[in-house]
């Protein structure tokens, strides 16, 4: 681990100024991913700027019924919040399906979406990786691809985003509020994460020194009937092979509206708008759900590799979406 300086600034503005002024500086939130990377040599900052106590750590109800979640709220507090559990069960479930009790106590709402891929080659500095070292090559292609992308990958990177919370946020039309060197702005959550393209080193649309201060969840009745379905190799404490965040509105056996996002399959939480479109007006049936999945998965491409590659993710995702929607449609929350 390279030595670094540590700064505990007085407020968020100073934190932003400090990082923005130093290309070698990083923010430290809950630390669950950054400290990991410091040890692995994946991150070698010269300055670490601590955020503890600087960011809002409450959940505020806005006039329009939206919830404003402070970036300093821990994952466990968010998951346990009664308003979240009632109005956005998909979000609470996504949070609770991630990591462990200890990690959820540490991880923050602002930090969680910014965690980096768990691609084993990205995390191993002795293997080439375009995300870690642009231009060095992608070791995952042709390697162990069980946990890699089937949607939106590029020839430069097939990594997936590991967050569960982010998948729910993407489905819920959340908005990310940031404070950067140029001031405050709001970004639709679905625009926060990038696909790898030819610049896999960039995970998000944030500028250097730009800090997430809150995430807004707009009020939406549809989210009351929502769920997160995570499929993984262990029953707990494991990253998703695939996951589905879904909200659905059914009336008289017909799907009126749907919100769907996938996890574990792309470089970003994957908002499944084609699937949503296919569902609107369709009968609430397995056939509709499968057709919706197929609409979204037409461009899916498995990554061949050791141990059979990851082609299984395509039928698995179709089946998981179908099961999730079937469960949601069959259950009346009122």
């Amino acid at each position: 681990m390279k030595p670094f300086d540590y700064l505990a600034p007085a407020d968020a503005a100073e934190a932003v100024r400090s990082v923005a002024a130093n290309p070698d500086a990083v923010f430290l939130g809950g630390g669950t991913n950054l400290v990991d990377h410091l040890k692995l040599g994946v991150a070698e900052p010269g300055l670490v700027v601590g955020l503890a106590g600087l960011l809002p750590s409450g959940i505020e109800e806005l006039d329009d019924g939206a919830l404003r979640i402070g970036a300093g709220v821990s994952n466990s507090d968010l998951a346990a919040d009664p308003r979240v559990r009632e109005r956005f069960p998909v979000l609470s479930q996504a949070l609770l399906s991630g990591a462990s009790g200890q990690l959820r106590n540490m991880a923050t709402v602002g930090g969680n979406p910014l965690q980096r891929t768990r691609c084993v080659y990205f995390q191993d500095v002795t293997t080439p990786c375009n995300k870690r070292e642009p231009g060095s090559g992608c070791s995952a292609i042709g390697g162990w691809t069980r946990h890699h992308a089937v949607l939106g990958a590029s020839e430069h990177c097939i990594a997936v985003h590991p967050s569960d919370m982010a998948v729910a946020m993407a489905a819920l039309d959340a908005r990310v509020r940031t404070l950067g060197p140029a001031g405050e702005r709001a970004i639709p959550f679905v625009e926060l994460h990038r696909l790898p393209g030819d610049a896999p080193e960039r995970d998000t649309a944030l500028e250097h020194g730009e800090l997430i201060t809150a995430i807004d969840l707009p009020a939406q009745p549809i989210a009351r009937r929502s769920a997160y379905h995570k499929v993984r190799d262990r029953a707990s404490y494991a990253f998703a092979l695939v996951s589905v965040a879904a909200a659905i509105e059914v009336e008289g056996g017909v799907i009126r509206d749907a919100r769907i996002a996938f996890g574990g399959v792309a470089h970003a939480p994957w908002r499944a708008r084609r699937a949503e479109e296919a569902l609107r007006g369709a009968p609430a049936s397995d056939g509709s759900y499968r057709a919706a999945a197929d609409a979204e998965l037409t461009d899916a491409r498995p990554a061949e590799g050791l141990d059979g590659g990851n082609a299984f993710k395509i039928p698995l995702l179709r089946r998981t979406l179908t099961a999730t929607l079937r469960d949601l449609a069959g259950e009346d929350p009122r």
């Binding site: 503890a52 200890q102 990690l103």
Partner: peptide
């Protein structure tokens, strides 16, 4: 942060001391 053997309570909550910088 993959095994939990380092778990301590900090501020009354269980956390992983291996992923916590002492300076914080």
């Amino acid at each position: 942060g993959q095994c939990g053997a380092c778990t301590v309570l900090s501020g009354g909550r269980r956390v992983l001391s291996c992923l916590t910088l002492a300076v914080t």
